[in-house]
Design a protein around this nucleic acid. Structure first.
Lengths: 143, 143
DNA sequence: TGTGAAATTACAACAATGTTGCAAATAATT
DNA sequence: AATTATTTGCAACATTGTTGTAATTTCACA
C-alpha cells in the first residue's frame, strides 16, 4: 500500500503526519522523476497554500527525504532520496539527466559521479553532475 | 586597454556597441569568476534598467559570449566564455566550482568534465559538473 | 559629417516566485 | 479528552522575471 509507505517514510524521518505532507510525498512516489515547486503546486491542486508547499519542501530537504537538483532555468527540481541517505547525511552521488525534449528530470541511480581532481587549494564537499540530452522514452518516439 | 578589448569582443560577435553592453562586459572582465543577474544589477549601479540587464545577458548567451552555470539556489550565474567558443558553438566542458564560504563561483578551466557512460537509450548533448566546497582563497584564511 | 533605418534602451505595467509574521487549525502527548 | 507543540492558511510584502511601447541611440551609407 502506498499510504502505508508514505506514513512510514514520515515517521522514519520524525515528521508529524499531515495531509499536505502526505499529498506531496504521494506525488513524488507516483511519479518517476523529479518535480519542481510549480509542478507540485499544480498537481496538488487548489488544496494547499503555496507557502505550505515551500515549507514542506524545505523540511523534506532538511530531513534528507528529498534532494535538490540545480538547473539552468531557475526552476530547481526535487527528487526523492533513496532509503540509504536519510538522517541528514546525503549520498546522492548519482548523475541527473534532463531531457531537452520532454523536459523531465530523472535520477540515474546506476550512474555514479566519477571522481575528479581539483587544482591545489580547492576542497570538494559535494559534486553534482547534470547531463542534458534526449531521454530513453523520447528516443523511442524518434526514427 | 580594457576598453579596446571590450569593443573588439562585441564586434566579433556582431553586436552593436552600447553603453550597457560595454559596462556589463567590463564587469565580467574585471572580475575573476561568475556573476548572477543581481550581482550585475548591483554593480552596474543605478545606471541601467533591470530589463536591459536581462536582455543583455540573453543576447550574450545566444551569441556565446557567456555561458550559464546552474545552481541550487535559484540564482543562475554567468561567466565569460573563452575565445574558442564563440560563434554559437560552445565548448565549456570545464568544471564549475562554488565556494560555500565566500559564495564565489569560478570556472576551473583546467579541469575538464570526465566522460561518462549513460544507460542504453539516453543521448547526451551537454554535461555540466558542479563542485561545491571551499575555494583556494578561503582555504588560505583558515588554520 | 549628416541623415534615415534598424536596433537598443527606459519606462511602465504586469506576472510569477519567494519570504515573513501571526492567528487559526491540526497533530501528538499525556 | 485536554493540553501542548506543530503545522497550516492567510495577508502582506519583497524579489525576480516578462512584455509592449515610445524614445533614444547606434550603425550604415550617402
Amino acid at each position: 500500500m502506498l499510504e502505508a509507505k508514505i506514513d512510514e517514510l514520515l515517521k522514519k524521518n520524525h515528521l508529524s503526519i499531515t495531509g499536505g505532507r502526505r499529498r506531496i510525498l504521494e506525488l513524488f512516489l507516483q511519479q518517476e522523476g523529479a518535480l519542481s515547486h510549480s509542478d507540485i503546486e499544480k498537481k496538488a491542486g487548489e488544496k494547499f497554500d503555496r507557502v505550505t508547499v515551500y515549507r514542506t519542501l524545505q523540511v523534506f530537504l532538511e530531513k534528507g527525504l528529498i534532494h535538490s537538483i540545480p538547473t539552468s532555468d531557475n526552476s530547481i527540481r526535487y527528487a526523492l532520496c533513496k532509503d540509504d541517505c536519510s538522517g541528514g547525511q546525503h549520498r546522492d552521488d548519482h548523475v541527473h539527466f534532463i531531457c531537452n525534449t520532454c523536459g523531465s528530470t530523472v535520477c540515474l541511480e546506476d550512474v555514479s559521479v566519477p571522481p575528479i581532481k581539483l587544482p591545489r587549494g580547492y576542497v570538494s564537499e559535494q559534486v553534482e553532475m547534470l547531463v542534458s540530452g534526449v531521454c530513453k522514452s523520447c528516443n523511442l518516439l524518434l526514427p
